[in-house]
Design a binder for these strands. Structure first.
Length: 246
DNA sequence: CGCCAGGGGAGCT
DNA sequence: AGCTCCCCTGGC
């Protein structure tokens, strides 16, 4: 997602291209209604009532109340599994600006060239096949550094095991996490991110350095995870977003 | 130039 | 569970 105008954003998901323009409290999508209904509605999780989650926040927890108010528009997306795995493999020991650049680089180098509805060129996310064919260090050219071999080996794993990606989407949270942890370069934090941002397992609660710092600071007696059982990941995102903008 | 942190992970003990 | 080392780039 990137801003292309004051209230307009463009987004590439898989091989799809979308523009969203916000006016006041409503958003208009560049796609037709059937694509919106069939794909983007689910992608942005627009049928879920997030206010219901927010209403379950402890009213005495002023930090979390403020965080949820600041992030009332946050949505847990359903991003493509393969794309999410690669993106979070790249994210480790890395900053957002460089992560975006890395992803852009591999898309331009290994993704299929496409045209959007305005006739502009964009690049789809590279397929497992296109990355599996590369040398383990090839993606260093895309600025991935030592993460290159994580991505290439994982790509090979999925081309060697056709149907595996689809299989993982059908697993429970714990089984999916277990499966993801077997991938080279995937540890607990990255597995949790994939579970949350692609598989939509809202129980997933990724703890990165920022979240850990925030939890240590605001919950000295431990974060009350049990209270938010089943949607811990939504709460995590309010905390994450709040820390990001503060 | 060296140092170190940036949305961890692998491999040992 | 905790430790060490791994590894790359950008900023200082």
């Amino acid at each position: 997602m990137r801003a292309i105008g004051e209230h307009t954003y463009s987004l590439i998901a898989g091989s799809r291209y979308l523009e969203i323009t916000q006016t006041d409290e409503s958003c208009s999508f560049s796609c037709d209604e059937s694509e919106f209904e069939e794909f983007w509605k689910r992608y942005f999780d627009l049928d879920t009532d997030y206010a219901a989650y927010i209403s379950r926040i402890n009213p005495n927890d002023s930090y979390l109340v403020q965080a949820s108010e600041a992030g009332y528009g946050v949505r847990i997306l359903r991003q493509d599994l393969w794309e999410t795995i690669v993106s979070f493999l790249i994210s480790q020991q890395n900053n957002i600006v460089r992560i975006r650049k890395c992803i852009q680089n591999i898309c331009e180098k290994y993704g299929e060239e496409k045209k959007n509805f305005k006739g502009e060129t964009y690049y789809a996310f590279p397929t497992p096949q296109s990355l599996a064919n590369q040398d383990e260090d090839a993606l260093k050219e895309c600025n991935l550094g030592y993460r290159s071999k994580y991505v290439v080996r994982t790509a090979r794993y999925f081309t060697d095991n056709p149907g595996k990606l689809e299989e993982i989407t059908k697993l429970s949270y714990l089984k999916a996490k277990e499966e993801l942890l077997t991938l080279f370069g995937v540890g607990i934090k990255v597995a949790e991110c994939i579970c949350l941002f692609s598989l939509h397992h809202l129980q997933a609660f990724p703890i990165d350095t920022h979240i850990k710092q925030a939890l240590d600071q605001h919950y000295k007696r431990g974060f009350p995870k049990r209270r938010y059982k089943g949607f811990e990941g939504v709460i995590q995102q309010y905390i994450f977003y709040y820390e990001l903008i503060s």
